[in-house]
Amino acid sequence: MARIRAGAALFALAALSGCAHIGAQPWQRDVLARKSMQLAREPAIMAFDEHTYFSKEAASGGRSFDGGGCGCN
């Protein structure tokens, strides 16, 4: 039992120390700032696709609000 606790503590410590490295420093942001890395890369294509899926499938939402604004479903 003690061994499990020690293991768990070690794991938590390792995870915490890992947290310290999560993210990017301000001078490391060139890749994140690229056009190709933006979450909504091509908003028009995304909107057309969402509209198609909204009108053909029961599920909606996820990326954003799940309303539809059209009578297609």
Partner: peptide, 8 residues
């Protein structure tokens, strides 16, 4: 409407 660039 659904996927505004500024919403993300």
């Amino acid at each position: 409407a659904q996927t505004a660039p500024e919403a993300a």
